[in-house]
Design a protein around this nucleic acid. Sequence first.
DNA 1: GTCATTTGATAAAGCGCATTATCAGGGAAT
DNA 2: ATTCCCTGATAATGCGCTTTATCAAATGAC
Lengths: 352, 352
Amino acid sequence: MSAKKQRSRLSDVAQLAGVSPATASLVLNKRVTGNVRIPPETQERVFAAAAKLGYVANPVAQSLAKGRNGLLGVFTFEAIFPITQRDFYYPFLVGIESAAETLGYDLLLFTSASTGDGRRRIYRNGQNRLRLADGAILLGIEDSKDELRALVEEGYPFVFVGRRELPGAELSYTAADYAGATAALIDRIYNAGHRRIAYIGVDQHTESALDRRRGYQEGLLHNGLTFDEELMCLVPDARFDQTAMQKLLELGVTAVVVEIGPIISAVLNACKEMALDVPGDMSLGVLGNPFGDMEDMSYFSGFSIPREEMGAQAVHLLIRMLNENSFHGPQRVVLPCTPVTGSTIAAPRSRA
Amino acid sequence: MSAKKQRSRLSDVAQLAGVSPATASLVLNKRVTGNVRIPPETQERVFAAAAKLGYVANPVAQSLAKGRNGLLGVFTFEAIFPITQRDFYYPFLVGIESAAETLGYDLLLFTSASTGDGRRRIYRNGQNRLRLADGAILLGIEDSKDELRALVEEGYPFVFVGRRELPGAELSYTAADYAGATAALIDRIYNAGHRRIAYIGVDQHTESALDRRRGYQEGLLHNGLTFDEELMCLVPDARFDQTAMQKLLELGVTAVVVEIGPIISAVLNACKEMALDVPGDMSLGVLGNPFGDMEDMSYFSGFSIPREEMGAQAVHLLIRMLNENSFHGPQRVVLPCTPVTGSTIAAPRSRA
DNA sequence: GTCATTTGATAAAGCGCATTATCAGGGAAT
DNA sequence: ATTCCCTGATAATGCGCTTTATCAAATGAC
């Protein structure tokens, strides 16, 4: 129909108010302090003109001029809103959003970075699109550390949600104390009377998985048990079956701790098919919040990951980094997990 | 520690390559067509220089120069990731994200617009922060139409997810065909043998609610039933109780259709407490996908709202609007709902 | 050898705003 | 009357990139 109504610019406001663009800018941004003096009446004229024209500053121009724009990037290596793992990411996002809201930042979700195969890349033909935001929060499982390394070298400010280590470069993150929580869980299981406790997980070597396994060993040691390589059961693709369970039984195992994810179902199924009662015949500790089609969370004994808090803290950390001009070394926050009593840990049958 | 490594600019690349910034820009953006000619060797020099410096274009400056930035805004009137309604917004976001990803746009979440009371405003002291993005997708329930009207008058391109009408101004949206789906549901209930069908909803007058109620009336008419004002049961705050149910029973009601939300629980509770079997004593049709702590969705008879599709279509619509220079009138998409068989509709007891 | 055309590239003008050093003018103090 | 200082503002520059009209030199045509 008609031509698009032309947006009014700062200079339009200035003209209408009979002042210079500089004055208008100062007034509208409330920068009338120190040796800049604009009498109230003039300010009124500017405000009136702005209101009359429906003036809205162009944020892009503002960003360019002042070098920052109040945007926090959120980058995930998979889709941000995955259907399959919605319950996994959701709490992080809740925390991130609420912190950003409180602190007055907007969130930029990098959805354009798709590679077509469902994965995402930070760099594409050399361009780092993250730079559109003042800084970014990263989450998810990265394919390789190369992009992270490049980001660090660029000097781009970011915080990972979840511990990430990069040899030679220290990066910032918020993490859950998986090791401590796992060790504490082992304590509980030990105190329930168990002496042969197996670890079941997927054959993956993320930092968080390493933390859990370290916690497992520490928990054993702490209770005077020795670490038995045979009880560390890592399977590919969550393929834990009756055979595997049989093996553990033959080794005298009366309790297991299990990583979260589909593998929990696999373990439960194995028990069911072998007519093993949980926790009667086999106690079960879960290393985090089960998610997906898992039943009521409070059924499982284990601990709860402070996901929301991790998200929120990541935002706080990032903003702190953005506000300090000089580099103060990597920022890190490790948050405690909350024990969940549940009802899958009991005394071993032989003792009962 | 050390000063932040200075980012290299386009002019640095140009200098290193021994060309002008203009040339560098043209080469890096692959704009060497038409009457702009740069021989391959020169182009190589530019690429090499860019690679050597690790050059990354500043997206903010690019945006300012070209007048758009590839950002799609997402604005919700409540928090985007509310804990209570997670299942409600999530599917929209899935659709929005996947469409944005496909089309190569990033998403800008306006979380800074909080008013402190959990609600959000588009305008704050006259500033429309949405303008950070090229266009925006709006969702959620607005407090008033004032902001929408202002947005329209500004000429800002946006698409609402969900039908929204604004007297005097036509706006773009993607909607679900609630009226049609509700009418079809009434058909099913009628065909099951019911002749007194009540409508239970909350006392709210959003467009979608009006659509459902219109569909209810149309469904009745279509089956030769007359609309009885007494069977239209709108309660405030989802407070549907035994008294209300008793009234309906006395009016001969054998089936009800219920809006989605907490009110479903209220209705189920009332039935339970009155020892009314569903669907034996009372058939129940649900006007959409139940969400929240509701039981398995396939339990309820009703229909499914194409939420994901609505989100995705909104993105497509918006991008189409952005790409056409002249205004072509409001863009609208109405999507059909899918019937869900469920098991809460049966023949009325008196007929069985 | 002259003129027309093509090639290779660039200068310059924005995009819309922020920032700071500077300045004209008027009143107060001397 | 001169100096000084304060008030009220602004000119000018820059942020980093895009875009287009323009142009000098090289090439080709006759």
